[in-house]
Design a binder for these strands. Structure first.
Lengths: 223, 223
DNA sequence: AGGGATTATCGTCGTTCTGACGATAACACC
DNA sequence: GGTGTTATCGTCAGAACGACGATAATCCCT
């Protein structure tokens, strides 16, 4: 029951070019120098865990407001030996963000970049953490309205559908998806405006106030 | 990034007399001496987090095999000031167990007992942890087969239904519940035997191999 | 201006799932 | 044998879903 050191590690996901991407940094210092890893860092002495996650997210990505996206605690990883520096326990967070401008490099990372899944080999046990994060995101899209966290404040139904298709790696029927989303109470709220592009202009929506969906959106059977 | 101390705290739930109960210990040492708290203790120097949870569960409840029930990591709580002894971060675990003989008192607890929810005032931030644990259990009963973790190895559909009714604090139609459980693939498997009691003998079932339920069991609307 | 391509949105139809509830079965007890 | 009690099977209307046709509203091209 002696001393532990605590880190937060972030699984930051977004949709880019129709694919699920994760934000990775190239480690600038040992251990695992030069290898890819999840962004993260040590928790400060008198810092709340959530605050540490928000701080690291800001430092590594320049994301200041989580308001647009979503940030939640994922799981804590504390196997002895998972970090060669000693007994380091990591509280992992899952962040879902709309597509952003290129990320910034952090203090102890020589580079940060988006990687389509599955990404490269990762340092520490970060491959396991990433797998758990993606699985959590996949599951939560079924029974919560979190899919909208991948979208900007205003979005079309087609953009939201593209999120589901990217995260689940399937294709969904546009008509049935539209019906499900617009008839599920509190999922999305129309803004009254429309966005013009290729094809018929699409109505713009904002996130609804509902957090959980009853009934959930069913993911097509086994892949 | 200096020294943290790490504890595991357990939200141990079971069904007793048709009600959801939580296992609490009366603290035998300061801080909060004499008050009720979740069972738990410090993580050893080279001990895995899951192993620490299993150890504490055994020490405080005498539960040796988790095989019957279910144990999973719940969340980590690390707000500065949550423990007057200093910076103590707690990894909370959620355990779902079938009804057991009376629990044993642990080393640093002068007594351990089952409490129907909502229990008494709790030390530290354990009230919040308990609330999160109960909420997790309620949600997981909808889309997983974890309800069977509250039952002994062999159980009747009525016993399983009593679990859902206790955890959700509702009443469910016995005929529709029976249909749903027996027709959902992999939820339960018949043993071929039956148990006699009051009324017509009931068929005995074992847990099926399915972990997630497609589609989920819907909890009746708002309470 | 008009035709084609493209995407959004609305409907339809048959199937499945659900909730409400009636009917029967298989015991224990008297 | 009758009665009470619980388990299990059926039925039926309404809701939800998957597949897919039909229409609407724009852009692009000629």
């Amino acid at each position: 029951m002696a001393a532990f050191r605590l880190t937060v590690d972030l699984v930051v996901l977004t949709i880019r070019a129709g694919a699920l991407n994760v934000l990775l940094v190239q480690r600038g210092i040992p251990p695992y120098q030069g290898e890819w890893a999840l962004p993260g860092g040590f928790v400060l002495d008198d810092e709340d865990l959530d605050a540490a996650a928000v701080r690291e997210l800001r430092e590594e990505t320049g994301v200041t407001a989580v308001g647009a996206g979503h940030l939640e605690q994922l799981r804590t990883y504390g196997a002895p030996g998972r970090d060669p520096r000693g007994r380091v326990v990591s509280v992992a967070y899952l962040a879902l963000l709309p597509d952003l401008p290129a990320p910034t490099a952090g203090s102890d990372a020589s580079g940060a970049a988006w990687h389509p899944l599955p990404g490269p080999c990762l340092a520490f046990d970060h491959r396991e953490i990433l797998r758990d994060g993606v699985e959590r995101a996949r599951a939560k899209l079924e029974y919560t309205s979190l899919g909208a966290a991948f979208c900007p404040a205003e979005f079309t139904i087609a953009e939201l559908r593209a999120v589901y298709e990217a995260v689940w790696h399937t294709t969904l029927d546009p008509r049935n998806f539209h019906r499900k989303v617009t008839t599920t109470d509190g999922f999305v709220a129309p803004t009254g405006e429309r966005r013009t592009g290729v094809g018929r202009p699409a109505e713009l929506f904002r996130r609804g106030e509902a957090e959980v969906l009853h009934p959930p959106i069913m993911r097509p059977a086994r892949t």
